[in-house]
């Protein structure tokens, strides 16, 4: 079982890397031209760059070379900065992890209470109002919200709420670190779906036979409902929404000057710095895969028969 999952994961990562590589090669621009940026372009100079670096001339040659490095546990070095990609990811990765996991938490803090409340009181006016509010915020484009929040902080509270922008550690400076997390948590576009899914599943579970039986017996309902109506849809949503949170992180990192992988990949995409893009794509894909494996584990834990099927 574990070996199979591992093999599947490896296959998935291979597929992702191939697709990303092909897309990068189809998009216009030579990744190595960044080394001569600033010089008027010249054909001979370009050819000499490839020669000096010993870069294979065909795209599949480059891909195989990259793959060979990966097999030896080497993510390669950035074309633009010459820094080993693995080291850069290790440096910037925790910042992005903090941002994405933190904002996922914010999303859940918003979605779960609303879902719980409206599952138990589906027809209440407050429940309806809350649901509408949740739908509204999750439709807000995150790139616009970032600007609005920064503008409000500047003009309402008279502070410049960016960690990396403050000349000296400001009072309550750590609070500014929470700002991008909250912005991404609110506006990553998934709050409404998490709420809806959770409420739907919870509502469904609450009408199931065994819950009714439990209720009739006077047993506490919530413990029964918890696993199927809460834990499963939660992991489900987290696993399937992580790609959107990661995507949102790229934008939020731009606006809030957050030194993470999102800023790195954005710069790398402009330069066609493929070792960096590929490295980050791999890490992101592995992260997404990890989440879905976690989901599978939790499913199996809740309902052991699925594991044996």
């Amino acid at each position: 079982m574990a070996a199979r999952e591992l093999a599947l994961t490896a296959l998935l990562l291979l597929g992702v890397s191939l697709v990303v590589f092909v897309i990068l090669n189809l998009s216009p621009g030579d990744p190595f031209s960044v080394l001569l940026e600033g010089q008027a372009p010249g054909h001979a100079a370009r050819a000499s760059v490839h020669e000096a670096l010993g870069v294979p001339t065909t795209w599949y040659g480059r891909y195989l070379a990259w793959l060979g490095n990966i097999a030896r546990g080497n993510l390669g070095t950035s074309i633009r900065t010459g820094v080993p990609v693995a080291g850069e990811i290790a440096r910037a990765g925790p910042n992005t992890l903090y941002l994405t996991l933190g904002s996922l938490l914010v999303t859940l803090l918003l979605a779960v209470p609303v879902a719980l409340y409206s599952a138990s009181r589906a027809a209440g006016a407050l429940a309806r109002g809350l649901r509408l509010a949740v739908y509204l915020v999750s439709a807000v484009p995150v790139f616009w919200l970032g600007y609005v929040v920064i503008y409000l902080f500047i003009h309402r509270f008279g502070v410049f709420p960016l960690l990396s922008g403050s000349a000296e550690p400001a009072r309550h400076g750590w609070l500014y670190g929470l700002l991008p997390i909250v912005v991404l948590g609110v506006a990553n576009g998934t709050v409404s779906e998490v709420t809806r899914h959770l409420r739907g599943e919870l509502g469904r579970v609450l009408t199931e036979d065994y819950i009714r039986t439990a209720r009739a017996k006077g047993a506490p309902v919530w413990r029964h409902a918890f696993k199927e109506g809460f834990l499963l849809p939660m992991t489900e949503m987290i696993a399937s929404k992580i790609p959107f949170v990661i995507g949102g992180a790229i934008i939020v990192e731009q606006v809030f000057n957050w030194p993470g992988l999102g800023r790195m990949v954005w710069q790398a995409a402009q330069d066609r710095d493929f070792p960096v893009i590929m490295g980050i794509a791999l890490v992101a894909a592995a992260f997404v895969r990890l989440a879905s494996l976690l989901r599978a584990v939790i499913y199996a834990g809740v309902n052991p028969r699925t594991a044996t099927d």
């Binding site: 739908y135 999750s138 439709a139 807000v140 500047i154 779906e193």
Partner: peptide, 28 residues
């Protein structure tokens, strides 16, 4: 957004509201 901090909110807010309203519509 390039003009947002100059107090010209509208040119970025109009498309942002379009996005908001449309996504909201599909979700509802």
């Amino acid at each position: 957004a390039n003009y947002f901090f100059h107090g010209k909110f509208w040119p970025s807010t109009a498309p942002a509201l379009a996005i908001l309203g449309t996504i909201l519509g599909f979700h509802l």
